[in-house]
Simulated assay, not measured.
Amino acid sequence: MNKVLEIHQLTKRFGSFTAVNNISFSVEKGNVYGLLGPNGSGKSTTLGMILNAINPTAGSWKWFDQNPDNNSLKRIGAIIESPKFYPYLSAQKNLEIVADIKEASHTKIDEKLELVGLISRKKDKFQHFSLGMKQRLAIAAALLNDPEVLILDEPTNGLDPQGIIQIRELIIKIAEQGTTIILASHLLDEVEKVCSHVVVLNQGKMLYAGSVDQMNSSFGSIVVSAANMETLEYTLKTLPFISKVTHENSKLLAVLTEEKDPADINKILFEHGIVVNHLVKRKESLEHQFFQLIQNQNN
């Protein structure tokens, strides 16, 4: 696939503080990439550098296989801070001003308002919009010149549950139209639901870069119990698809090394003379994988 962005050993220091520490990754066309990490992990600083808003201390990056310049940045739409529009002007008037700045056609305004679900409110003043509506208007503004890449920094920050769902659905819709999206978020649930790829950052360091599926590729575990727990534990440890067995309350937690159906596991244990009274399969969440990466970094 075509790469729209390549980052190589990017570093940013503010005095003695290293905000971004030697990170390298690439973004391929047509995917949704999430920069995932807690506040202060370096997400916004990274976005600032690739948008030429912050000068890097070291490293380099390329947009569309060329060094960053005004021409390449014209192919990118970005929302880095809270939406800023004229409060006493309507949504349409505000977008007309943005269109003039971007040298985009005014004919795009209704199209983008329709996309973000605000076409019926285009005559309403910005000051009367909810926070979620303001964010959707900002996305419409960023899309006026039909950018190939859309960059969003914490797009659901401060929104209520309904606003979060609306922004999430909008991101998916924009991606389906072929726009590459890079979003920064500290919300695991947001990244898991909308992103195809994830870059995990913590304390300025990159801990993982790749697909969400690969990060969350563990085969899970089973929680199991039987009348004779000692025999059960011994048998589980002899099975080739079990890597680790630990105690969890009054049950055993067994980590799987391959995909196994609970019914098949039950049958195998029965063939070993064990009748289980509890067997539940767990799939490790992205949250578990994320905190495992953080824990490994701290150890």
Rank of each mutant, 00 (worst) to 15 (best):
L5K: 02
E6N: 14
I7N: 01
L10I: 03
T11L: 11
T11V: 12
F14T: 10
T18Q: 15
N22Q: 13
I23P: 02
I23W: 02
I23G: 04
S26R: 14
E28G: 10
E28I: 04
G37F: 03
G37E: 05
N39S: 10
T46N: 00
L51Q: 01
N52D: 00
N52R: 00
A53G: 04
I54A: 03
P56F: 04
T57K: 04
A58R: 14
G59T: 04
S60M: 07
K62Y: 04
K62C: 07
F64R: 00
D65N: 13
P68K: 03
N70C: 01
N71F: 00
L73P: 00
R75P: 00
I76H: 00
I79R: 00
I79Y: 02
Y86R: 06
A91N: 12
A91D: 03
N94R: 00
E96N: 12
A99D: 06
D100H: 07
S105N: 13
H106T: 12
H106S: 14
T107A: 15
K108R: 13
K108C: 06
L115T: 10
K125M: 11
Q127W: 12
S130I: 08
S130W: 06
S130P: 02
S130F: 15
L131T: 13
L131H: 09
M133R: 03
R136E: 14
I139N: 09
A141E: 00
L143V: 13
N145F: 07
N145W: 06
E148Q: 12
V149S: 02
L150G: 05
P155A: 01
G158W: 04
L159T: 10
L159W: 05
P161C: 10
Q162E: 11
I164Q: 10
I165V: 15
E169W: 09
I172C: 07
I174L: 09
I174C: 10
E176G: 09
E176W: 14
Q177C: 14
T179E: 01
T180M: 02
T180P: 08
S185C: 05
H186T: 12
L187Y: 09
L188A: 07
V191E: 07
V191N: 01
H197W: 01
V198E: 04
V200N: 06
V200I: 12
L201S: 06
G204H: 15
L207T: 12
L207I: 05
A209K: 08
V212G: 10
M215L: 15
N216I: 11
S218M: 00
G220F: 01
V224C: 09
S225N: 13
S225Q: 08
A227G: 14
E230H: 03
E233T: 14
Y234P: 05
T235S: 09
L236Y: 07
K237N: 15
P240W: 07
F241S: 12
I242D: 01
K244T: 15
K244M: 11
K244H: 15
T246W: 04
T246C: 13
E248A: 10
S250L: 14
L253F: 05
L253S: 10
V255S: 05
A263N: 07
I265Y: 11
H272D: 06
G273N: 09
V276Q: 11
V276H: 14
N277Q: 13
H278S: 02
K283Y: 07
L286P: 13
Q289I: 11
F290I: 11
F290Y: 13
L293P: 11
I294N: 10
Q297I: 14
Q297A: 14
N298P: 08
N298F: 10
N298R: 15
